[in-house]
Amino acid sequence: MIGVLALQGDVREHRRALESVGARTRLVRCVEELAGLDGIVLPGGESTTMVNLAASFGLLDPLRHAIHAGLAAYGSCAGMILLADRVCDGVPGQPTVGGLDITVRRNAFGRQVESFERDLPMTGVAGPPVHGVFIRAPWVESVGPGVVVLAQVSDPSGADRIVAVQQGALLATSFHPELTGDLRVHEYFLNVVRAEPGWSQAPGRRLSKGA
């Protein structure tokens, strides 16, 4: 069972992508809905709004604890910001869920007029390049020693910027595969979930397909 944090953002698109690759899903708005999940997706949207709502409804700490305890998670765009241990250019004092040993720069690629889409190769995703949709997108400024860089693209100045990372069961992309119909990144995440120790052993914690 994969949760989709449903406080705000493109929840429906992530849910559809997950179900298309065979996952059962549950929307998560309150603490009780975290129980029994094999993984959780933090969608695109506004990170400040999601953190604010998560804090108001007592979801922030339980989510943080679940992820630190090993719950697999995938964050796209705002979701990447939520998973980052450190944020620059954010609202001062903006808390995150954390877990990923990375520093993320919010809106790093610029404002909406600079939003773009392009193909990019992503390590671990076989076949043609992934089509990345970058919307007021963040990039990863720096990564800790345990973090694997899965994809980079060049920014307008020509410098390579990190846009996809993985650290154990935590995956994050600056871009939005859920907007393209290409399901390979969600499939990749499900494989991460399945590789976690303990998955499929606990009753009720089972994906509907592929076990």
Binding site: Q8, G44, T123
Partner: peptide
Amino acid sequence: AAVGDRTSTAATGTARVKRGMAQMLKGG
């Protein structure tokens, strides 16, 4: 070799990028 790429060009102002921005505002 698969990480980093300068061959593909970025397209701005596409319908997907414009409509996608509104997707990110949903529920807000």
